[in-house]
């Protein structure tokens, strides 16, 4: 549905995208996972025909992003990272505006947005600028969907959004997927990767890996030991001082330890920490998560 071939893009001396190639299948919920500055927004702007690539080709549902840009705009819904609706128009007026621009009506495609829009409908006369963050996000999504796009592109829809609203948003995306919309979504939250069918891990304009979230973690070759004791900060420092430590980082309530090789045993960490008077020590081998994989790849480029 989306084919990206050797796309590069630079802004003066910053290389935002370095020869990126990707394919997104029809009906897929595909995630671009990476921090600020990875190149996610540049890639999305090229796909939505808002900027031109320096080199390379990209197609959306068979249409070329440069020569067929007008046709692409008819089949793509785009929600930019920054709220870009009309702040001084009401909720209803914004929605009507976008429907009219695309030559349709709110009634015609109401089915598609019902689940999302009904939550903000009670406020339909309120100006968009006066909505809370969560409501703005729902309105923006409604506006991006009102012309029944084949492809939906969402640039960090959950950034700065609390954990509850983030969960609700992903539930909405899953529902849209059942309506045969291909979704490309970017996020800096690694935990959201597991909600996608496939993900591309991106950093510094490059794709580090593309696969299903489970495959990405399964094929990770390194052994990860999670460790806990009563004093997290001292634990981190002591583990880093251990001669066989390669990387040591806090992971929620645990500290994740990767050794210089995979021979490091949990029992030797136990002994080492006991000698340093740590209390309630727990060290166990675990399956890595997406964040472990990302961090390991990042330190290897």
């Amino acid at each position: 549905m989306i084919v990206i071939k050797n796309i590069s893009k630079s802004y003066s001396d910053t290389r935002a995208l370095k020869n990126i190639s990707l394919r997104v299948n029809r009906g897929e919920l595909f995630g671009l996972i990476g921090p600020d500055g990875a190149g996610k927004t540049s890639l999305m702007r090229i796909l939505t025909t808002l900027i031109l690539p320096d080199s390379g080709k990209a197609k959306m549902d068979g249409l070329d992003v440069v020569s067929d840009f007008k046709k692409i705009r008819q089949i793509v819904g785009y929600m930019p990272g920054r709220f870009s609706l009309y702040q001084d128009l009401s909720v209803e007026e914004n929605l009507n505006f976008f429907a009219t621009v695309f030559g349709t009506t709110v009634e015609e495609n109401y089915d598609l947005i019902r689940d999302i829009y009904y939550q903000i409908e009670p406020f339909k006369t309120r100006r968009a600028g006066k909505l809370s963050g969560g409501m703005k996000q729902k309105l923006a999504l409604s506006c991006a969907l009102i012309h029944k796009p084949k492809i939906l592109i969402l640039d960090e829809p959950t950034t700065g959004v609390d954990a509850v609203s983030r969960k609700e948003f992903w539930d909405m995306l899953k529902k849209l997927q059942t309506k045969e919309i291909t979704i490309l979504v970017s996020t800096p939250y690694m935990d959201e990767a597991t909600l996608c069918d496939r993900v591309a891990l991106v950093q510094n304009g490059q794709v580090l890996d593309v696969d299903s979230p489970t495959r990405i973690t399964e094929k990770f070759p390194r052994k990860i030991i999670r460790v806990r004791s009563d004093e997290t900060y001292r634990l981190i420092n002591d583990l880093r001082a251990y001669e066989k430590a390669e990387s040591v980082f806090a992971f929620g309530q645990f500290v994740h330890f990767v050794g210089i090789n995979d021979e490091v045993e949990t029992s030797e960490l136990d002994m080492y920490l006991e000698k340093r008077n740590h209390k309630n020590i727990l060290a166990e081998e675990i399956q890595p998560g997406i964040e472990d994989v990302f961090m390991n790849m990042q330190s290897n480029i």
């Binding site: 990476g34 921090p35 600020d36 700065g160 800096p188 690694m190 900060y233 981190i236």
Partner: peptide
């Protein structure tokens, strides 16, 4: 106030190293 939004996971953790340090 939300000091770590948008950065990569390694940078985010290094930031917490700084937090731990000043707290200590």
């Amino acid at each position: 106030d939300e000091p770590t939004g948008g950065v990569d996971p390694v940078t985010r953790r290094k930031f917490w190293d700084l937090i731990y340090e000043v707290a200590s």
